[in-house]
Design a protein around this nucleic acid. Structure first.
Lengths: 127, 127, 127, 127
DNA sequence: GTGGTCTAGACCACC
DNA sequence: GTGGTCTAGACCACG
């Protein structure tokens, strides 16, 4: 797990992102156990609470289950995005696309990138 | 200008975004003067410092020129995104795409959205 | 017996609840023997201690008798709720009612639900 | 605000409950400002983080807005309970009702209590 | 062993 | 001033 400690993105948020990416890429499988809070905290070199917060956020997003017996595991199923959340995503992307558009990034650049990322996601067991 | 005060996105950042969107959509033209810090602050209902910070960030991004005599104006030319910044955008998008992919958004959903936004950007004077 | 391992409600507590529900519904009769700690632990797939704790709590609540010779049996009589415990229940419900009230659940919704549950409890031998 | 420090209910949870009750009773009005995290922490005599967690949970429930400019305020509108959450409430109540039913609380006792609480909630401006 | 809560104290960004 | 993040270290409940 790669963490940029001098980023303005909170560490717990970066941890979440890495796990979400790992899931999309198939590196992390449904039902798979994640390291314990303390283990990952040590591995990443941060405080226990920071990982705790990350796991908690992933729980709220429906990505992981927390079971006192076995720790934290990737959920078997995630549940589709509700419309409101999807709209929020799109709204954010609109601004970001506007920004890169203004500064010379063509539509085909963007489409190529989407294509590339979705390819790296496909090819694992479907939801 | 629409500001969401209960958003966790800083207000100055929201101001920037609105202006960037306005430029992409053609609502704001190159060379056009923006409201003075004071005026915009009053209009939006926020502190002077907040607008000042927004304008400053836009200057750093190359979007506006600040001239003490004529105030803040949209730049005539923006300068293409450097590779490093572009990579940062792509990296962010990768995580966000991973997230929506995990939660059931198909590639065609995303492509349609990109298409729609780029259409709303085209059809104004080119850079 | 249905246990939700990813719930934040302790497993022993869930076991208690299932048994209490079974009694109210008449599925479990007064004097009836419950499975041994060992058997139930195996059936539910949890640690011996967990079932032991559940049975112990039920004993403290007056729901079961524990006799080393004959195992655990449902008590013949439960004894009414003392005022203090009843007040605690009411206090909890007040908050929960406040919550659903705030979020649009009408009184008649609640009354219908109470009605329905009490119906599912009636129709068995009285205490 | 009354907090029971020796309760097994977490302090942050108790804080949430008090505020939810206050809203239902009309003691706290929509749009009203709540004490700052630090202020309330001092008032209640707990750590700043404990209150922070309480406010955060209320934010997730849609009860409050967090605005960096003015602190934390009661939301203007709460949004109705979704069906899934409502079912969870009912499921909990079923067990609790079973418990009090087993131990001699009659349906009319319960209905009276519901009636009494809903009366204490009504009589303020409607949602 | 696991996660959950709480404390104490620090620093930061935003306004 | 506000909330947000992070650290360090403690204690608890559950299994």
């Amino acid at each position: 797990m790669i963490i940029d400690y001098k980023s303005d993105v909170p560490i717990y948020e970066q941890v979440c992102r890495e796990i979400i990416l790992g899931i999309a890429r198939g590196d992390l499988q449904r039902g798979q156990a994640l390291p314990s809070v303390r283990k990952l905290a040590e591995e990443v070199g941060v405080n226990l609470h920071t990982i705790h917060k990350a796991y908690n956020q992933l729980k709220d997003m429906g990505y992981v289950n927390v079971d006192r017996r076995v720790g934290v595991t990737i959920a078997d199923q995630f549940g589709d995005l509700d419309e409101k959340t999807k709209e929020n995503f799109y709204k954010d992307w609109e601004v970001q696309l506007a920004d890169v558009y203004n500064r010379g990034v063509t539509k085909s650049d963007v489409l190529d990138m989407i294509e590339k990322f979705y390819e790296s996601f496909e090819g694992r067991e479907k939801r």
